[in-house]
Amino acid sequence: MTVELNHTVVYARDKRASAEFLAEVLGLEVGAPFGPFVPVDTGNGVTLDYYDAGDTDFLPGHYAFLVPDEEFDTMIGRLERMRVTYFADPSHQEPGQINRLFGGRGAYFSDPDGHNMEIITRPYGRP
């Protein structure tokens, strides 16, 4: 049996703004609203459904995106143009740097709601 992640809900203070932020960084499109959600579809069939949390507190999540190596520099350029600081590490201690884990490149950045976003060009090794 094959199991695949189909969609996940991403809590936001402003679902439209947060969806547009991610779509701009990754070079994706924001989809038409679907019920209470504003979707961003990824290339592997997974949808991030942005949802307004209202006054409800939520813990920021971590979302990692495997991106084509040839698009990585373009995405870093978008972050720079948007004046969003990126980091080489998940704890955001190495600003303006990227990592080179597992023979690829990677960077972390925060979205408008404090979610820790990650772009990587190679999947992390598994034992």
Rank of each mutant, 00 (worst) to 15 (best):
L66W: 03
E24N: 13
E94H: 05
E4C: 01
V10I: 02
E20G: 08
N44G: 07
V25K: 07
I120L: 11
L79E: 15
R81L: 04
L28S: 11
G96V: 01
G106K: 11
A17V: 12
G54D: 13
Y51F: 15
P60G: 12
D111K: 01
R81C: 02
R122H: 15
V67Y: 01
G106E: 15
D69T: 06
V46N: 05
F87Q: 02
P33K: 04
L101Q: 12
A19H: 11
P39T: 01
L22P: 12
L22F: 08
P127T: 10
M75V: 09
A53Q: 15
L101G: 08
M75A: 04
A107S: 07
I98G: 14
H62T: 03
V46F: 01
K15M: 11
L59Y: 02
M82G: 03
I119Y: 10
V3K: 01
V10P: 07
L26M: 04
P33T: 05
F65W: 14
F109P: 02
S18V: 03
F34C: 03
Y51E: 08
G103M: 04
V46H: 07
R100F: 12
V46P: 00
A107I: 02
D73Y: 08
G125W: 06
D89Q: 06
T85P: 06
G54N: 14
D41H: 14
A64G: 07
P90F: 07
F37N: 06
N116L: 05
F65H: 01
A32K: 09
